Computed example of a mutant assay.
Amino acid sequence: MTAFSLDPAQTAWCAELRTLAAQRLRPLAEKGEPGHVNRPLVAALGELGLLKRLFTSGALDLCLMRESLAQVCTEAETALALQGLGAHPVHAYGTRAQRDRWLPAVSDGGAVAAFALSEPGAGSDAAALALSADRDDRGGGHGGDGGSWRLTGEKCWISNAPEADFYTVFARTTPGAGARGVTAFLVPADRPGLTGTPLDMLSPHPIGSLAFDGVPVTSDDVLGEPDRGFRVAMGTLNLFRPSVGAFAVGMAQAALEATLGHTAGREAFGGKLRDLQTVAHQVAEMALRTEAARLMVYAAAAAYDEGAPDVPKRAAMAKLLATETAQYVVDAAVQLHGARALRRGHLLEHLYREVRAPRIYEGASEVQRAVIAKELYATREAP
């Protein structure tokens, strides 16, 4: 298997995922309330063994899961991805006690995780975060002998907030140190001083803000090492950025297939829409861009799994190309469908609301371009 093709077993697995999404997951998604965690859907992902695979599979498998689910049920895809994003730092950087406490519950769908990095004044500029972790001589009352802190400040645009059961929280432990003064903490939702508010967003999945009013944490809650939390954040994002691209590719593929069906059957101007050259060429462009994005996503995921040195560049390229492509493809699909695609409940109306956010979260498109340029120049300047 190369980075540019799937073997028969992978292809069959993707087809099985799409069938499961249609038969088991989409009915649960349709019963969910927009803007809130759909716990029955999360539990079903656990029952099907998909959440456990977040911690036993590589980046390519993660991409295949996200792309396949997104083609059929974006709500299921997002629920799976948010569990992975919130819990991956625990899996990769947590202590045995942290992993034993939380990962089984995440895997079976019984606990909801969240990744709390963004702030009102520090979204894409993650190194500028201001949530403070101040040393607490009083102690936090939660054990640990390596120090205690109090978290004070805000987080914003946090997926699964305020309904998650625990948060991976990034806080400033050393003022003025930029990315080198950030520590990652595992913070259960029931810690005193932690409150949250849901936000009414364009995307239908749950997003909220968090307020930290002297929330106690100790060394037992640190993920990785103190002042090394930026490494935790970037390690997580380097894994998940290609899979954000896979989510986008899945949406683009769904929009493309809907357009093929519509243009093949729609009568207009004395024939089928597909017989109009401008329509046929538009559909060809949609397919071309979708396939190019898919191949870049697979290549970036394969590079991650192989431990390649250029993962940050490849991950940024894959996320950038795929999310921008999906926006183009979904928009073009809406245009070719006409007014029917704007009706509430139409697949493309749903995708149009879903497709916008991925160009912003986990690093906006402009940030991805900055990452790519930085990596290019660093390679050029290396001895």
Rank of each mutant, 00 (worst) to 15 (best):
A126M: 09
S159R: 08
G109H: 01
D108R: 10
G94A: 04
A161D: 10
G140V: 12
G153H: 07
L117V: 15
S107T: 02
Q83L: 05
A92Y: 03
A97L: 03
A81Q: 03
P120N: 14
S148G: 03
W102Q: 05
G58W: 09
G123D: 06
G143L: 11
G144E: 01
V112R: 01
F115S: 07
D125E: 15
L69Q: 06
F55D: 08
R101E: 15
S132W: 09
A76Y: 13
V72F: 10
L131V: 00
L54G: 14
S57Y: 06
A105T: 08
Q98T: 00
A161K: 11
Q83F: 12
T56K: 10
A81Y: 13
I158S: 04
A128Q: 03
L117I: 13
T56S: 15
W157I: 01
E154L: 14
V72T: 15
L151R: 02
A113K: 00
C73E: 06
L117G: 04
G123Y: 06
R150F: 10
G144I: 13
A79M: 12
G153A: 14
V106C: 04
S148M: 03
E163H: 11
G94L: 08
S132F: 01
G147P: 11
A122S: 06
F115E: 04
A87N: 00
D125W: 12
E119R: 09
V72E: 15
L151G: 14
P104S: 00
G153P: 11
A81F: 14
L151N: 14
T152M: 05
D100C: 02
F55Y: 12
Y93N: 11
A133M: 04
G140Q: 13
P120R: 03
A128W: 01
F115I: 11
E67V: 07
Y93I: 00
E163W: 12
G144F: 13
P89G: 03
S57A: 06
E75R: 11
L85G: 07
R138S: 05
F55E: 04
T74N: 05
F55H: 14
V90H: 06
T95Y: 04
L117Q: 02
Q71E: 08
G144K: 02
E163L: 08
A87K: 02
C156E: 13
L131S: 06
K155S: 12
G139W: 04
L54D: 07
A70G: 08
V112T: 13
A70E: 05
S118K: 01
A161W: 12
P104N: 02
L64Q: 03
L85H: 10
R101G: 00
R101S: 03
R101W: 10
W149F: 05
A97S: 07
S57R: 13
